[in-house]
């Protein structure tokens, strides 16, 4: 087997065990994995930002535009520099300047400049969020809730068959469920006797939903856990030089030594 595949398996098993070791208690192995994880995550995001955002979306269009303009004014420039891609554009400079303005916070004397950038980001964020929220959290929810309670059979009369009645029941339940749940979220209304009862029904609806959501999510998390265990199972073989059993053994030895020592030193 390829050496990199074996090395990858050992690293994967090792880091999985280091992270899982936190289930017992905080220890140096977990700290290693934690710091490695953070460092790699920051480095990865930094490189993604450089190669997927900064170079293709800012540097290339702006430099292409600058070189194209320079070539028109000073023809000999084109002998030395050939812009890659199209003629480019200077427009990306505006968002770039806003972004760079945030870095002025490093220098206290000019940190006030960053406020313009933040004002733009917060204003833009709120501006973008408000219509999107109205569309998805308000209109789309109403659209999804409004349904005809009865359906027509082929003859034109109201369909009273079993499935149709079940659909009607679902539509009524959904409609009433939404209304009573909304009632729970009234903040400026003092709840009287009747409204308290309505609110309580609303809470029941919420609890049913939360129970269903909990079950669904837990099942999803188990799928992730199986994935990790499957890796540990796969890497136990001789092809990977028994990565899983050896590393489990080493982690256990470390635990005995480390926690045995700390027990002795603790008063």
């Amino acid at each position: 087997m390829d050496f990199t595949a074996i090395l990858g398996a050992w690293i994967a098993v090792g880091l999985t065990l280091f992270i899982l070791s936190f289930l017992y208690r905080d220890n140096p192995l977990f700290k290693i994995a934690e710091n490695l994880y953070i460092g790699i995550a920051i480095g990865y995001i930094f490189s993604i930002t450089i190669y997927n955002v900064w170079i293709p979306k800012i540097y290339q269009p702006v430099s292409n535009r600058v070189f194209t303009s320079l070539s028109n004014w000073v023809p000999w420039v084109s002998k030395f520099v050939t812009p890659a891609g199209d003629a480019g554009s200077l427009t990306p400079l505006f968002p770039a300047i806003i972004g760079i303005s945030l870095l002025t916070r490093i220098f206290p004397k000019i940190s006030w400049i960053s406020r313009y950038g933040f004002a733009f980001i917060v204003g833009y964020g709120a501006g973008l969020a408000i219509p999107a929220t109205v569309a998805t959290m308000f209109i789309a929810q109403i659209e999804g809730t409004i349904q005809p309670v009865f359906k027509l059979a082929s003859g034109g009369a109201i369909d009273l068959s079993g499935p149709a009645l079940w659909t009607s029941f679902s539509a009524i339940l959904l409609c009433l469920g939404v209304i009573v749940t909304l009632f729970y979220f009234f903040f400026s209304l003092e709840h009287g006797k009747i409204s308290k009862k309505v609110t309580k029904i609303g809470i029941y609806f919420l609890m049913v939903y939360f129970g269903a959501a909990f079950g669904t999510t837990v099942m999803g998390r188990f799928a992730l856990l199986y994935g990790r265990f499957f890796d540990l199972y796969t890497y136990r073989t001789s092809g990977y030089y028994h990565a899983t059993p050896i590393l489990i053994l080493l982690v256990l030895i470390f635990f005995f030594v480390y926690f045995g020592k700390s027990r002795k030193t603790s008063p």
Partner: peptide, 22 residues
């Protein structure tokens, strides 16, 4: 809260209206 009252009214009237139309 006014928004919620509006939503509740619309859901109720909308369901009745759609049923009638259907």
């Amino acid at each position: 809260d006014i928004g919620k009252v509006f939503a509740m009214a619309v859901i109720l009237l909308g369901a009745i209206g759609l049923t009638l139309a259907h």
